[in-house]
Amino acid sequence: LQLFIKTLTGKTSTVEMEPSDTIENLKAKIQDKEGIPPDQQRLIFAGKQLEDGRTLSDYNIQKESTLHLVL
């Protein structure tokens, strides 16, 4: 599924993920695209901070969801 990652600067990146992927996997993919180390990334979806060990489906993240990346 395609996700949009929006940064505080207003920049939006697109990443392709599976519902079974963990937040950790997602942060690794963001690191590949943006060069931001996972330990500096905080991802927010629906007002919640996402935890590394959980999966996208745990948070009911659907295709074309927008996640907010806070550093």
Results as ranks from 00 to 15, higher is better:
2 Q>P: 08
2 Q>I: 15
2 Q>W: 11
2 Q>S: 10
3 L>A: 01
3 L>Y: 03
3 L>I: 14
3 L>H: 01
4 F>W: 09
4 F>Q: 07
4 F>K: 09
5 I>M: 02
5 I>F: 04
6 K>M: 12
6 K>A: 07
6 K>F: 07
7 T>S: 11
7 T>K: 07
8 L>W: 15
9 T>C: 14
10 G>D: 04
11 K>D: 08
11 K>C: 09
11 K>Y: 13
11 K>Q: 10
12 T>F: 11
12 T>H: 06
12 T>Q: 08
12 T>M: 13
12 T>K: 07
13 S>C: 13
13 S>N: 07
13 S>E: 07
14 T>L: 12
14 T>I: 14
15 V>F: 14
15 V>N: 01
15 V>I: 14
16 E>C: 12
17 M>P: 01
19 P>H: 07
20 S>K: 08
20 S>W: 15
21 D>H: 05
21 D>S: 09
22 T>R: 07
23 I>C: 01
23 I>V: 12
23 I>G: 01
24 E>C: 06
27 K>L: 03
28 A>V: 11
29 K>V: 10
30 I>S: 00
30 I>E: 00
30 I>V: 05
30 I>H: 00
30 I>G: 01
31 Q>C: 10
31 Q>I: 03
32 D>Q: 14
32 D>R: 12
33 K>D: 06
34 E>R: 07
34 E>W: 15
34 E>G: 05
35 G>F: 03
36 I>Q: 03
36 I>R: 03
37 P>R: 08
37 P>S: 07
38 P>W: 12
38 P>D: 04
39 D>I: 10
39 D>C: 10
39 D>Y: 12
39 D>T: 10
41 Q>Y: 15
41 Q>F: 15
41 Q>G: 03
41 Q>L: 09
41 Q>K: 02
42 R>E: 06
42 R>N: 10
43 L>Y: 07
43 L>S: 00
43 L>N: 00
44 I>R: 05
44 I>S: 08
44 I>M: 12
45 F>M: 05
45 F>N: 02
46 A>I: 06
47 G>C: 05
48 K>C: 06
48 K>L: 12
48 K>M: 13
51 E>F: 07
51 E>W: 05
54 R>L: 11
55 T>S: 09
56 L>A: 03
57 S>I: 09
57 S>A: 14
57 S>D: 08
59 Y>M: 03
59 Y>T: 01
59 Y>L: 05
60 N>C: 05
60 N>I: 05
61 I>V: 07
62 Q>V: 13
63 K>F: 09
63 K>Y: 10
64 E>H: 15
64 E>I: 06
65 S>P: 03
65 S>N: 08
66 T>I: 14
66 T>L: 10
66 T>F: 07
67 L>W: 02
67 L>K: 01
67 L>Y: 03
68 H>N: 08
68 H>A: 06
68 H>E: 10
69 L>Y: 02
69 L>H: 01
69 L>F: 03
69 L>K: 00
69 L>I: 06
70 V>H: 09
70 V>F: 14
70 V>P: 01
